[in-house]
Simulated scan of single mutants.
Amino acid sequence: MTSHPVIRPYRPADGPALDDICVRTAHNGLDSRPHYHDPSILPAIFAAPYVHLEPHLAFVLDDGRGQAVGYILGTADTPRFAADFRTDWLPRVADRYPEPAGEPGTPDEVMARLLHRPERMVVPELAPYPAHLHIDLLPPWQGRGHGRELMRVFLNALHEGGVPAVHLVMSTANKPARAFYDRLGFHEIETSLDATVTCLGRTTADAGRS
């Protein structure tokens, strides 16, 4: 009997798989392990706090055998999430990933600085797009329509919760990701952030047409 992939809500048992997916896709969609001394800092910033603070907005692509091979997760309210990250999440991981004393000198230190400064997520120009998201799929599962379906499920959840719009911040160098988001109706938002990142946003309405 053939098992078919399905999208389902996150379960706590998925945590290690989501951390692994994050690590294996965090370098502009490619494996981050060659680039970091301790790549576990990446899911500590971009995956684990979301399933800890807002698990109801986390959905996984299940390979049909119970194994998560992709995910989408995020928050409905970025300023609130940044505050909760500071008070609830950061104390759980701060000792493992200390903030560098001076300017970051390695990729690990750059990430540690991001970890210790959750207020960076609150960008004035993004206020009309209060939600934000992260989406990642392992390479064998990309290009098969699963990312589009994950996005549809997530946007519908936001829309049903009364959230009007969502944003994401991506590496400008990640051209395939930008093409994916463009196809899903995201548009660029001008901000004061540096040119290494691009901010995109869209309404949560009409997710079924994405």
Rank of each mutant, 00 (worst) to 15 (best):
F81K: 01
F81P: 03
F81W: 12
A82Y: 11
A82D: 12
A82E: 10
D84G: 01
F85Y: 15
F85E: 06
F85A: 04
R86T: 15
R86W: 06
T87S: 15
T87N: 03
D88E: 13
W89C: 03
W89H: 10
W89D: 02
L90A: 09
P91W: 08
P91Y: 11
R92I: 05
V93T: 07
V93A: 02
D95H: 13
R96H: 13
R96T: 13
Y97E: 04
P98C: 02
P98G: 03
P100D: 08
P100M: 07
A101M: 07
A101Y: 01
G102M: 06
E103I: 08
E103H: 11
E103M: 09
G105Q: 14
G105I: 08
P107I: 11
D108P: 03
D108S: 01
D108M: 04
E109D: 11
V110Y: 08
M111Y: 10
A112E: 11
A112M: 07
R113M: 12
R113D: 13
L114S: 12
H116D: 11
R120D: 14
R120A: 12
R120H: 13
R120Y: 08
V122N: 07
V122C: 09
V122M: 02
V123N: 02
V123A: 01
E125W: 07
E125V: 08
A127K: 02
Y129Q: 03
P130A: 07
A131Y: 08
H134R: 09
H134N: 12
I135D: 10
I135Q: 13
I135S: 03
L138E: 12
L138G: 04
P139Y: 05
P139Q: 13
P139D: 08
Q142A: 04
G143C: 02
G143D: 10
G143S: 05
H146R: 02
E149D: 14
L150A: 07
M151H: 03
R152L: 09
F154Y: 15
L155M: 15
N156E: 15
A157D: 01
A157P: 02
H159M: 00
E160Q: 15
